[in-house]
Nucleic acid binder design. Structure first.
Ligand SMILES: [Mn+2]
Ligand SMILES: [Mn+2]
Length: 312
DNA sequence: GTACCAG
DNA sequence: CTGGTACAACGCTCG
DNA sequence: CGAGCG
């Protein structure tokens, strides 16, 4: 008989198959994933609260079948918070899960929901993102640290440009191969507004570092360059959330970083389910500023509208 | 991972 | 009971 | 419109 338990958080959560190995290379079991959620809940919850959650589940481990899940499944406990959003494509409401407590994170871990992807906007205003996110994707050929290093170089170019524009920026690993850079923004701006900024900077950085950065949408035209994926910041799209595990052999998680750490050459596999709780104890939540009031971008939008072909 | 159905 | 099976996303972009 | 993409 497989090991089972009922955990008492805000609500009782039944957990099953506790000894199932979800990350075989790292030897991480479901019990350890649940323990990770218990330790990280206080830090993670603010980054997911009031946001639509998309998850990727791997019920039999990272090397077996996986699937995206947006709708809350049948048989889910009734205390889970959900939010309906109409889908034009499937002509029905999608009942998204909204994380608002530890019990929900424990339930997700038991579901083998191993990747958590929150929306950019909060449920009370789904047309207004609370952040701008830049998604930097190495063109993957194999497990390749060179790709990540290149993404770091692109990120440092981007950081310089954002500094010049007076915008604060916070980087994190995706946990897989790439990097993401976030800016907290004030309420009142649409995805059309933020697209103006991400598109402008994508073009600007490609022009500044054409040997390592591309915006080619077709993979075959990207070469070995870093894909500056400005299309990823949009309504109904998501990125891996802060501190979410990823389905990679190392059991790496998405880790907020300091710019100095990036300059010093950290790599994604340094930050895992095993190491992140200790890191939190040491450096705290480097993404805490994302929960603070965001910056106004009105002046920058005005600037870009009058300099459509991009220079600073 | 879970609900459900046929055996 | 038990074993087998079905099911668990979506929508933008540009050629 | 649909292949491609994430
Ligand atoms: Mn990415
Ligand atoms: Mn991407």
């Amino acid at each position: 008989m497989s090991r089972t338990d009922t955990l008492m958080a805000e609500y009782p959560v039944k957990v099953t198959n506790l000894d199932k190995v979800l990350w075989p290379e790292a030897g991480v079991t479901k019990a350890e994933y649940i323990q990770y959620m218990i330790q990280m809940a206080r830090i993670m919850i603010p980054h997911y609260t009031d946001r639509l959650l998309t998850v990727i589940r791997f019920p039999s481990g990272i090397h077996d079948k996986s699937f995206y899940q947006k709708n809350i499944p049948d048989g889910a406990p009734d205390w889970l918070k959900t939010h309906p959003v109409y889908s034009d494509d499937s002509h029905r409401d999608i009942h998204y899960l909204v994380v608002d407590n530890t019990a929900t994170l424990l339930w997700l871990a038991n579901q083998a929901a191993m990747e958590l992807h929150p929306s950019y906007a909060k449920i009370h205003n789904l047309d207004q993102p609370t952040n701008i996110a830049f998604d930097l994707d190495p063109t993957v050929k194999e497990v390749d640290i060179a790709g990540f290093k290149k993404a770091v170089r692109v990120a440092l170019h981007l950081k310089e440009a954002l500094d010049d524009l007076g915008l604060p920026s916070y980087p994190k690993t995706s946990g897989a191969t790439g990097l993401q850079i976030f800016i907290p923004i004030a309420p009142g701006y649409t995805f059309e507004d933020t697209r103006l900024i991400t598109q402008f900077l994508a073009h600007y950085i490609v022009q500044k570092a054409p040997d390592i950065c591309t915006i080619e949408r077709l993979k075959k035209d990207r070469g070995d360059k870093v894909y500056f994926d400005y299309l990823q910041h949009w309504k109904n799209k998501t990125l891996s959330g802060p501190y979410t595990p990823r389905a990679v052999p190392s059991a790496a998680v998405s880790s907020p970083l300091s710019w100095d750490e990036l300059r010093e050459g950290v790599t994604p596999d340094l930050f895992t389910i095993r190491t992140m709780p200790r890191r939190i104890a040491e450096v705290g939540d480097l993404f805490a500023p994302m929960s603070q009031p965001g910056v106004e971008i009105r002046d920058i939008l005005h600037f870009i509208k009058h300099h459509p072909t991009g220079s600073l």
